[in-house]
Design a protein around this nucleic acid. Structure first.
Length: 817
RNA sequence: GCACAGGUGGCGGAACUGGCAUACGCACCAGGCUUAGAACCUGGCGCCCGCAAGGGCUUGUGGGUUCAACUCCCACCCUGUGCACCA
C-alpha cells in the first residue's frame, strides 16, 4: 500500500512506463477522429528551459490528455528549432562547433522536458538542423525560386507558366530570363539592409525595428548588399482576408492586420516642369488615401530614394538637393528617430501641375516621405494632414483650406491621371543571412550562366563540417572562406562556379515544421500527402505573443504558397492553423521580467526537484489567467502542494462499505466534472484548479471513508491531465487496470447539477435583507409569500407597501417600495 | 498618434446571459498538536463606526439605464503591450 506523497519515488517510474508502453504515440491510420495540438517548438539555447516554456506545454498537455481520454487520436509532437545566431555565438564563445553545442543543448532540454511528464509523442521528434530535415527546407526554397505569383488568379504558379510579353520576347533569351527573374517568388536584389555591426549579420526589417538589433540591442547600420528576398508581399491581401476563416484571438488578428497595414486610396499622376527640360516629359505618381483632398494640395514631396533614382537617370539637380539626398540616405533609422519629428527638406526647383485644378506647385524632397511605402512620393495637403502641416509651417509653404471633393477620384480616373490603389506596409522578406549556422541557400553562381539552382537530386546542400566559422567584417558569410565547399562546377556549363554562401534565417525551418510532424521520417517527400490530409490543419496552435507578427505570418505565408502549388492537399484548406491562442509571460517575483542580470530567474529543475513535476504543473496552471502575465510566487507553490497532498490523503482510507454521498457533495461532484471539462476547453485552467480544490475540501470535510470508489475515480480522472503522475499512482493503488490516461473522461449527469434546495435571497430596495433555504421547485407565489413573511424584510419595509416585486427563478426576490 | 489588453481586499485572482461582490489560493492573526521547530489541524480575516447586537460604505473616476450594474451605455483618468513621419 502507498505511503506519504513523495513525487521523487513515483514520477520517474511512471514516465518510464508511459514511454515503454508508447501511450502518447499518435496513429497515422486511425479511424478515430484526430486532434492535433501544437506548441511552438523550442529553441534549444544554452540557458536551458525557462519556467515560461512549461506554461504553454502543460496547458496543451492538459487539453490533449482530455481529448485522448475522450477517445480522440491525439498528436502532440515536439522538436527543435535549432539553427540560429544564439547557438552560433554560444559555440564561438565556448570554442566548440555549433553542431556539438546543439547536441548538448537538445540533450539538456530533452532531460528537462521529460522530467515534466508531458505527453509528447517523442517518436516524431524533429530537428531543423538535421540534414534530413533541412533538405526539405532547401527544396522548398527551390520551389519559391521556381515560381511566380499570378495576381489575377491569386495563386503561385510554376515559373514555366509565366506569360512573356511580346516586346520582351522579341528582345531575345537574355531579356526573357531577366523578366522571369524579376517575377520569381525568391529573387536576388541589391537593397539597403539593416546591418548589425555587433552580430555581423544582416537583419530583416522585423528584426531591426526602431533601428535596434533585436538580438543584441545595439544600433543597426545600413549597408548595400545583394540579398535573397522572398515575395511575401504578393500574399498581403490573402494574409489579411483569410483571417476571417480562422479562430485566432482577436488581438492576434488585429496585430497581423496592423502589421500588414492595408491602405485603400489612389495613385495620382502629377506632371512636372524640370528646369532645363521640356515640359510634359516627366511625371511623378503619388499615393494618397485621401484623393478627395486634392484641391487642398499646395506642394509635392518626394522621398530621398525617389530623388536618388531621378539623379541616377540624369537629373541635373541643384547641389544642395544632391547633398540633402546623399546625407538623408546615409542616415540610420536610429538617427532619424532621435531627431524626433522635426521636418527637414529642400526645394528641388521642379514644379508640378495639380491635375485637378492645373495649379503650379513646388516639389520638395524630404526624408519624412518613405521610399519604400506607396509610390515613394506624396501630395502635401497641410490643411488635412498633420505632418504636411508641420512641413508647410517649417518652410513657409501655403496652406489651402479648399473644400474636399468626394468625386475627385472619378474625374481623375476618367482623365487617366489617377487610379484607385491599395498599398501595404508589409515588405518583402529578406531571406539571406551572412552566417554559418543556417540552411545553405541551394544556389550556384556561375560567371557565364548566372544563378543556377542546385538540382533537387543534389539536396541537401550540407553545411561543411569545419572549425572556423566566425563571422567576418566584410559582410560576407563565413562559408565564403571555405574554398573546398564554395568552389563547384556549374551544373549548366560545367565551368568553374561558386556556391551561394548566404544561409537562411531561422524563420525558414520553423515555417513548415508542423507539416513535418505528420510524417517526420519520410525521405521521399517533406510529408506524405495522405498523412497531411489526415492531420492538417493544426487544430490548436499555442505560442507566445512575440511570434504574432513574425513566425505566425511567415508560416501562414509559407503554407499558403505550398498549398497554391498543390504540394499540400487542397482539402487541408489554405490556412495551417485552425485555432491560435497565446500564453502570457511568467514574471519574476514582484512582477518584473525574469532576467539573469536581475538574478530572479527560476530554474524549473529546482522546482521539480523540490516539489515534483505535478506540483509544478498545477502551480503553473493555477498562477493566473493563461493569457495574462503573472508573477512567480514561491508561497503559491506551497498552496498547490498542500492541495495535492490533501487529495493524496483522501486515498489513505479505503471507502466504507456503506459509503454514500450527501446530496450536497454529489451535486458538487457533477458541477465540478462539468466545470473542469468546460474550463479545459476554454483554457481557464486557473478556475479548473480552484474548482477541484473546492471539491477536495468538501470531500475532506465529509471524511475519506465516506467517499465511494466511483467518486474517487472521477476525481482522479479530472485531475489526471493536470497531475499525471500522482493520479496514475493512486489509480494503480485503487487496483484499476491500464493507464488512467487511457481511461474514459467522466461524464456528468445534467439532472444532478442542481440541488433540491437553494438559498433564496431577498432584497429590499436593492439591498440584501434576508436569505433562507427553500425547495428548488418553489413557485413564484410561494417564494414571494415567504419573502414577505420574513421578519427582517418586514423590519426594513418599515410599514411601507411594496410597489414592485421581482422574482428571479432559483435566485432571489427583489422588493422595492 | 493608432491598435489591443487591463484597473476588484495586504497579494495572485473569482463572479453564468445584468441577480448574494471578494470563490480558490497566498500572506497575516488567534488557538490546538509538539521538549522545540517544521508539517498538520481548528477558527478569524474587504473598509469604517460599535464591547456587542447591528449599521454604513466598497469593484479606477464622474454621470446614466434598471427592481437590481464588476457586468450595459456616455465621458474621463491610469497602467501594460504592439505599431508608429505608413501619406
Amino acid at each position: 500500500m502507498k505511503s506519504g506523497y513523495t513525487p521523487k519515488d513515483i514520477e520517474k517510474k511512471w514516465q518510464d512506463a508511459w514511454e515503454e508502453q508508447g501511450i502518447y504515440h499518435a496513429q497515422d491510420n486511425a479511424k478515430a477522429e484526430r486532434f492535433y495540438g501544437l506548441i511552438e517548438f523550442p529553441y534549444p539555447s544554452g540557458e536551458g528551459l525557462h519556467v515560461g516554456h512549461p506554461r504553454s506545454y502543460t496547458a496543451l498537455d492538459i487539453m490533449t490528455r482530455k481529448k485522448r481520454m475522450e477517445g480522440k487520436n491525439v498528436m502532440y509532437p515536439i522538436g527543435w528549432d535549432a539553427f540560429g545566431l544564439p547557438t552560433e555565438n554560444f559555440a564561438i564563445k565556448h570554442k566548440i562547433k555549433p553542431q556539438d553545442a546543439t547536441k548538448q543543448n537538445v540533450a539538456n532540454f530533452t532531460r528537462q522536458i521529460k522530467s515534466l511528464g508531458l505527453g509528447f509523442d517523442w517518436s516524431r521528434e524533429i530537428n531543423t538542423t538535421d540534414p534530413k530535415y533541412y533538405k526539405w527546407t532547401q527544396w522548398m526554397f527551390l520551389k519559391f525560386y521556381g515560381s511566380w505569383y499570378d495576381a489575377e488568379k491569386k495563386t503561385a504558379r510554376p515559373i514555366e507558366e509565366l506569360p512573356i510579353p511580346k516586346n520582351i520576347e522579341s528582345q531575345g533569351d537574355a531579356a526573357v530570363a531577366t523578366y522571369r527573374d524579376s517575377k520569381r517568388m525568391a529573387y536576388k536584389a541589391t537593397t539597403t539592409i539593416n546591418w548589425c555591426p555587433n552580430d555581423k549579420i544582416g537583419l530583416a526589417n522585423e528584426e531591426a525595428q526602431g533601428g535596434i538589433c533585436e538580438r543584441c540591442g545595439g544600433k543597426v547600420e545600413k549597408r548595400e548588399k545583394a540579398q535573397w528576398m522572398i515575395r511575401i508581399t504578393a500574399y498581403a491581401e490573402r494574409l489579411i482576408n483569410d483571417l476571417n476563416d480562422v479562430d485566432y484571438l482577436d488581438r492576434i488578428k488585429a496585430q497581423q492586420i496592423n502589421w500588414i497595414g492595408r491602405s485603400e486610396g489612389a495613385e495620382i499622376l502629377f506632371m512636372l516642369s524640370v528646369p532645363g527640360q521640356p515640359d510634359g516629359r516627366h511625371g511623378v505618381k503619388v499615393f494618397t488615401t485621401r484623393p478627395d483632398t486634392i484641391f487642398g494640395v499646395t506642394f509635392l514631396v518626394v522621398s530621398p530614394e525617389t530623388a536618388k533614382s531621378w539623379l541616377d537617370t540624369g537629373w541635373n539637380a541643384p547641389d544642395n538637393v544632391k547633398e540633402y539626398v546623399q546625407s538623408a540616405l546615409m542616415r540610420t533609422d536610429m538617427e532619424r528617430m532621435t531627431e524626433g519629428k522635426t521636418k527637414t527638406g529642400v526645394f528641388t526647383e521642379v514644379t508640378a501641375t495639380n491635375p485637378a485644378n492645373q495649379e503650379k506647385i513646388p516639389v520638395w524632397v524630404s526624408d519624412y516621405v518613405l521610399g519604400n511605402y506607396g509610390t515613394g512620393s506624396i501630395m502635401g495637403v497641410p490643411a488635412q494632414d498633420e505632418r504636411d502641416r508641420a512641413f508647410a509651417e517649417t518652410f513657409y509653404l501655403p496652406i489651402s483650406e479648399a473644400a474636399n471633393d468626394e468625386m475627385a477620384i472619378d474625374a481623375l480616373e476618367e482623365a487617366g491621371q489617377g487610379k484607385r490603389a491599395t498599398t501595404y506596409k508589409l515588405r518583402d522578406w529578406v531571406f539571406s543571412r551572412q552566417r554559418y549556422w543556417g540552411e545553405p541557400i541551394p544556389m550556384i553562381i556561375c560567371e557565364s550562366c548566372g544563378i543556377i539552382p542546385v538540382h533537387e537530386s543534389e539536396l541537401p546542400v550540407m553545411l561543411p563540417d569545419v572549425d572556423a566559422y566566425e563571422p567576418t567584417d566584410t559582410g560576407e558569410s563565413p562559408l565564403a572562406a571555405i574554398d573546398e565547399w564554395v568552389n563547384v562546377t556549374c551544373p549548366s556549363c560545367g565551368g568553374e562556379a561558386k556556391r551561394e554562401t548566404d544561409t537562411m534565417p531561422n524563420w525558414a525551418g520553423s515555417s513548415w515544421y508542423f507539416m513535418r510532424y505528420c510524417d517526420p521520417k519520410n525521405d521521399d517527400a517533406f510529408a506524405d500527402p495522405k498523412k497531411l490530409k489526415y492531420w492538417m490543419p493544426v487544430d490548436l496552435y499555442n505560442g507566445g505573443m512575440e511570434h504574432t507578427t513574425l513566425h505566425l505570418l511567415y508560416s501562414r505565408f509559407w503554407y499558403k504558397f505550398l498549398w497554391d502549388l498543390g504540394l499540400v492537399p487542397e482539402e487541408c484548406g489554405s490556412e495551417p492553423y485552425a485555432k491560435r491562442r497565446s500564453h502570457a509571460l511568467i514574471l519574476g517575483e514582484g512582477g518584473v521580467k525574469m532576467s539573469k542580470s536581475k538574478g530572479n530567474v527560476v530554474n524549473p529543475d529546482d522546482i521539480v526537484g523540490e516539489y515534483g513535476a505535478d506540483v509544478f504543473r498545477v502551480y503553473e496552471m493555477f498562477i493566473g489567467p493563461f493569457d495574462q502575465d503573472a508573477p512567480w510566487d514561491t508561497n503559491g507553490i506551497e498552496g498547490v502542494r498542500r492541495f495535492l497532498e490533501k487529495v493524496w490523503r483522501l486515498f489513505d482510507v479505503a471507502p466504507a462499505s456503506d459509503a454514500t454521498l450527501t446530496e450536497e457533495v454529489e451535486t458538487l461532484l457533477h458541477q465540478t466534472i462539468k466545470k473542469v471539462g468546460d474550463d479545459i476547453e476554454t483554457m481557464n485552467f486557473n478556475t479548473a484548479v480552484s474548482t477541484m480544490m473546492i471539491l477536495t475540501n468538501a470531500l475532506t470535510d465529509l471524511g475519506a471513508e465516506h467517499i465511494s470508489q466511483e467518486v474517487r475515480t472521477d476525481l482522479l480522472k479530472i485531475l489526471a491531465p493536470f497531475a499525471p503522475h500522482m493520479t496514475e499512482e493512486l489509480w494503480s493503488a485503487l487496483g484499476q487496470s491500464g493507464s488512467i490516461h487511457k481511461a474514459e473522461w467522466p461524464s456528468f449527469d445534467e439532472s444532478k447539477l442542481q440541488a433540491s434546495t437553494f438559498t433564496l435571497v431577498v432584497q429590499v430596495n436593492g439591498k440584501v435583507r434576508d436569505r433562507f433555504d427553500v425547495s428548488s421547485d418553489i413557485s413564484e407565489e410561494e417564494a414571494t409569500k415567504q419573502a414577505l413573511a420574513s421578519e427582517k424584510v418586514q423590519a426594513s419595509l418599515d410599514g411601507k407597501a411594496p410597489a414592485k416585486i421581482v422574482y428571479v427563478k432559483g435566485r432571489l426576490v427583489s422588493i422595492s417600495t
